[in-house]
Design a protein around this nucleic acid. Structure first.
Lengths: 206, 206
DNA sequence: ATGTTAATCTTGCCACTGGTAAGATATCGG
DNA sequence: CCGATATCTTACCAGTGGCAAGATTAACAT
């Protein structure tokens, strides 16, 4: 047993998890700019070089956070869908609103997962998590037709049409470019989002 | 005359401009992560504290770069429109393609202008530059109806519908999420963009 | 012209960052 | 029980931005 007691042990027991937790919290509190390996390490009560063995370098930790971030994004979508009517179009809209809720609730993490350097290897786990979110959205779009995902011609364009709209809305919202009519208050964006998303997909149900 | 000769003068003569130029270049070459005041200062041949007097701190320089960035974005839109048919819908599409071209050509600057901290004062000049770009887009949308900008009900929603689509496309493109059909090659995105943008605006002409 | 003021730039310093190297400590397999 | 290995610490390094104090030049009033 790896010493689950809260006392100071030389070996932490589950440091990788603890670092990711602390990193996520730090990210939410100070943003990506103020993110510091030393700070997250101190938060866990560990020296600043401890994470190196688990993540390689700082980019490795960022990657791990991105993986979690994509999972959080997916969670946010399904959570919102659970509160919506089971109608295919409403489910699609709900997933978009969940997407927006995640962006609003943790802007730094949201931006992090979409600004990973397209370097050599973004990490297979990260790509898998990203694909899971993408495929979920694709499934919602496909449900409009009642068919299997990607089964009809133009399916990819249709999915990207949805994704770009939701994502663009999220980014502009975070950048503070939705100001004039709807300011601040939570849920105020829903009406605008529905209009901006367009009605063409509502018509395609069935 | 403030000594326009290229020889070493204690006073640079036009340091503010030179720093912004160097900063823009550094940003394009090393990205926002690798951005360093000391590097841009060295590039101009000046000590690392020289910019402080012109921009305050690093955030001040970032703000100045953002202002230029919004101007570049506007330039890219009008440049693309100049090569397109004068039909209102084609002009709107062209402005979107210019938007995308700018994002593709200078990703770091593009991301910079849309990730300014919504802090106390983003700088009036930056906001003005951003508004100029926004109003240009709004003008293109209004031209679909032949009317003055924002003159009819639902105009704002319509403009935001366009903006979110273009912007979302740009962001997902930079994040590397347009992979499957269209990879890498320049201009390959145009066909996908036209489909994703939707046909509803083409129908509204007149 | 001449001296005073203000703007511009430099040098030297500080705390902080992430990465490396070498050593300390604990777990694990024989 | 002992050696091998994983985990973590301490000590150090180059690099970063900001501040303070001083050097140099321009702007300006008289």
């Amino acid at each position: 047993m790896p010493k689950a007691s809260p006392k100071k042990a030389y070996h932490h027991g589950d440091l990788r998890r603890a670092i990711i937790d602390a990193g996520e919290a730090e990210l939410a509190e100070r943003g990506l700019e103020g993110f510091s390996l030393r700070r997250v390490s101190a938060r866990v009560g560990v020296s600043h070089t401890a994470p190196a063995h688990h993540f390689g370098d700082a980019a490795g930790l960022i990657n791990a956070l991105a993986e979690r971030g994509f999972h959080r994004l997916l969670e946010a979508m399904v959570a919102r869908q659970a509160t919506a009517p089971r109608d295919a179009y409403e489910q699609l809209i709900a997933s978009g609103l969940g997407y927006l809720a995640f962006a609003e609730q943790d802007p730094a993490l949201f931006r992090l997962i979409f600004s990973l350097p397209k370097g050599p290897d973004p990490g297979a786990a990260v790509m898998a998590a990203a694909d899971a979110a993408f495929l979920h959205l694709a499934g919602n779009v496909a449900a409009l037709h009642g068919a299997e995902p990607m089964a009809h011609p133009g399916a990819y364009e249709e999915v990207m049409a949805c994704w770009t709209r939701v994502h663009g809305f999220a980014e502009l919202m975070l950048a503070g470019h939705l100001a004039p009519p709807c300011a601040g208050r939570a849920g105020a964006h829903e009406a605008l989002f529905r209009k901006v998303f367009g009605a063409e997909f509502a018509a395609k149900v069935g």
